[in-house]
Design a protein around this nucleic acid. Structure first.
Lengths: 331, 331
DNA sequence: GTGAAAGCGCTAACAT
DNA sequence: ATGTTAGCGCTTTCAC
């Protein structure tokens, strides 16, 4: 593969000139430019990004660290985010290095260290559950960082989140409006921001309708299919008339149980799930859901990151994207 | 960030020695080693991968190019592959650069060129529909390549595919065994290997049961929800008693139509879909599907790639992973 | 058993 | 308006 030196030689100019032609970084007379372009073409020259990175300390690459659990449907959420990020990045000539913390705090540290070694220009991270923010201090390198989806306690810096509270409020309100007073709530592990926010929305709605909060209607467990299934079973025994599942995997688990028991939805029990995918429309009845703007989340995050990479010094921003309650036949 | 030079100075050795200690690439006396490790620790030294890449022409990074269509459920399939790849790579100290061709042949070329500029050590590519293999000749760099999912015509090189033909054969056979003789078939665009293979399986099964092939039972269209919906409608008018949808998006579209028409599944019409996700179990009745081993596909592909990167010269291999027909209530 | 030094391909400060 | 050249941080050949 041809180097800048060979191009310079062929065009009878210095490597500096070639470099400046490529990068548009200082004036070059038109005829000279022409010669250089010609030479580049003839040699099928492509700049070596690695050398460029080494010299300029800029890699045109950003890292994305997501917490995927193998075999978990939530993959879809983060992958949709990755997709949004990749799109914006491509438009701006950047690359994406994808990495996975497996929802494991050890692995997360390791992967960040790997990134630190690579000259990434920025990092988007969806933190592992329960991570509190000692990020900045020792762990992170000297690139900008945008945290998404979950906010580690006390993290100072740019964050892009989904307004889970509001959307859950809307969803639960719609149930209350229809007269439901015993609304079961299936939650993933509490203590992480996303779970807590959602439960907050549930409580807000109850308060708005002056319905007393009852502990027995709240069931918490690991965010798994199995657990969603079991908690739905427990809630039925509590005599709820409606069910809200606060994440996608548990929604599936709960639906699986209801299906098996041949519970009539929405007559015997109304159901609202979390996250919207095509197949939600295909269930019978079509499932009402809270839809998170995952693709937009990715886009927003990387847009903010790019701003920082360009040197923006404005104060740290917390962007809150609205989620949408979509009412279908199940509620 | 400390450099190898500073480490060398602090340890009173040459940079060569430090390098060799790090890489275990020639003998270093134990006491010297000790000094070097000590210095590295004190300086919190981490090797600069970019410099290393430049010098050694090895980046410990591989590229993945997938054809995602925005908003398409098939994302899930490729993302699951990405996930498998990432896992194997991490175990081997490699990184993954993720890129998207958007199922667009122009973009695919561009992205490959970007890769060529980056010192990737290898590439896994799920080619855009209809790509024929002029890959090697001009486009690809001098890194090993593994092609997955679809095989471009005449491509010579390592390929990892799914045995779609066999699985489709199994699925359609099960319908025939139950007495169905008018089996509608919904296909994505024909002419790409995955579609053709699947249709081949359908035909194989008919032949096996001596059922004549009828053109009117085969409906082809773009692999979209909308199209799946419409083709299902057309097939019902042809009087089919069973329906096979040859990809996941169209499965959703078809199901949506059947749901809307309140067609009783499987009594009025039996249905088999493509690709298995949790929510297939949750539909009523649970959907019978052909399940592709997507995660394994990613793993296998990158394992083969790693072998090549280590210099394996064995003949090009075509790996065919078995897909599984899973029978549930819908058929 | 270890060191000196060239050089990977590029950018950018300094010259002219 | 363009050229010279010193490095970025590392690996690796050659030398001792």
């Amino acid at each position: 593969m041809a180097s800048i030196k060979e191009v310079a030689k062929k065009a009878n100019v210095s490597t500096a000139t070639v470099s400046h032609v490529i990068n548009g970084t200082r004036f070059v007379a038109d005829p000279t430019k022409e010669k250089v372009f010609q030479a580049m073409k003839e040699l099928d020259y492509r700049p070596n990004m690695v050398a460029r990175s080494l010299r300029s300390r800029k890699s045109y690459t950003i890292g994305l660290l997501v917490p995927l659990v193998a075999d978990d449907t939530s993959n879809f959420f983060f992958m949709s985010i990755a997709n949004g990020i990749e799109q914006v990045l491509k438009e701006n000539g950047y690359n994406l290095i994808l990495s996975n913390s497996n929802e494991n705090i050890e692995t997360e540290r390791e992967q960040i260290e790997v990134f630190n070694t690579q000259f990434i220009d920025g990092l988007v991270i969806a933190p592992v559950n329960g991570m509190d923010a000692n990020y900045e201090k020792d762990l992170l390198g000297d690139y900008p960082v945008v945290v998404i989806d979950r906010k580690p306690s006390e993290f100072q810096g740019d964050v892009v989140l989904v307004n889970n509270r509001k959307a859950t409020y809307d969803a639960v309100s719609s149930l209350l409006k229809k007269g439901h007073r015993s609304i079961g709530y299936i939650s993933g592990a509490l203590g992480i921001t996303t779970s807590d926010e959602r439960l907050g929305g549930y409580k807000d709605a109850l308060k708005e309708y002056s319905v007393p909060f009852e502990h027995r209607f709240i069931k918490e467990g690991p965010a798994t299919f199995r657990s969603g299934y079991e908690l739905a079973s427990k809630l039925l025994k509590e005599g709820v008339t409606a069910l809200f599942a606060a994440n996608n995997v548990m929604t599936m688990g709960a639906m699986s149980f209801l299906q098996e028991q041949k519970v009539n939805i929405p007559n015997e029990i109304a159901v609202i799930g979390y996250d919207d995918y095509d197949w939600m429309k295909v269930m019978s009845p079509p499932l009402s859901v809270v839809k998170q703007p995952s693709f937009e989340l990715g886009k927003k995050a990387v847009e903010q990151l790019l701003k920082r990479m360009e040197g923006s010094l404005e104060e740290s921003k917390e962007v809150l994207l609205e989620a949408e309650f979509i009412e279908r036949g199940s509620s």
